[in-house]
Design a protein around this nucleic acid. Structure first.
Lengths: 141, 141
DNA sequence: CTAAGCCTTACAGCAACAGGAAGGTCAAGA
DNA sequence: TCTTGACCTTCCTGTTGCTGTAAGGCTTAG
């Protein structure tokens, strides 16, 4: 099948499939006489695998490792487990950091008068704890 | 003061300061006779403001808007409030999505035997589904 | 014969910088 | 005076994971 059919079956854009090939994440498929890429069932499986892995948040290098494991009948499940555990930790860290940011933003939102005046606690906070009378950005030319 | 001093005081790398200037986030500073950038106190305040805003997760365009408000004594705090509220919502959405990913990853980790055998529920899951929304919990093995 | 709808490659661009090359400037020390 | 090292400058490339667009070739239907 041609690339657009592979794209439809795998759920990945044709562009992305070509891109994965260009970075050697996928091995080059067969080509028809006219130069068109020609995909087979196994290729579709790899593409689906990659789409899923990307949806789970794995980056390209992690996908490369996972795909290698997928293709390797001699793999040990503990290797896969390790990769996914690491990713889980990574995502947890990210969530924690974002949570802190969210709380800070919520504080800002709560502190702002939200009215027609220029005075704004958010601006003051972002500007840093300047001394009174020295709130810059409003002073000087 | 020169750029390295401005960098030290603002907490931003000199590279970043030049970058902000190059994208017109900062207006070009004065130059000394030798061509060196020369910063003043107000510039440092803008830099600090931008560093803070970036730390709060605002992207460059949002920083641009915030900085405009910062510089504008005729601003209404409600405008600032709106920007920050939007950002808060954005971050909340992101956290929710990441949370879903995390839960799915945790399910994968829990489902894997984590041993020396090749059989691996994670691999099966990543390979198995071709339709979205069918990520976990299907029988199939 | 032409138009559409595929396919190909190759280059540009997104965010938000970081790294490095190549070269100019400045202050201090031998 | 010369040299060294620490600054500074601009310009170019690379990062991640694609997406958009251009310019052109192939295929099929009318």
């Amino acid at each position: 099948m041609n690339i657009s059919e592979a794209a439809k079956l795998s759920g990945l854009p044709a562009k992305t499939i070509r891109y994965y090939e260009s970075i050697d994440l996928l091995s080059p498929p067969q080509r028809s006489a006219n130069g068109y890429r020609h995909y087979q069932k196994a290729d579709i499986n790899y593409l689906c695998f990659l789409r899923q892995a990307r949806q789970f948040g794995f980056n390209i290098e992690q996908c490369r490792l996972l795909l290698d494991l997928f293709k390797n009948p001699q793999r040990r499940s503990t290797e896969v487990h390790q990769l996914v555990s690491d990713k889980l930790e990574e995502v947890d860290t990210h969530i924690r950091e974002l949570g802190e940011t969210r709380d800070l933003l919520a504080q800002l939102v709560g502190a702002c008068a939200n009215d027609e005046k220029a005075e704004c606690a958010i601006i003051d906070t972002l500007a840093g704890q300047q001394e009174q009378g020295q709130i810059l950005g409003e002073s000087k030319q």
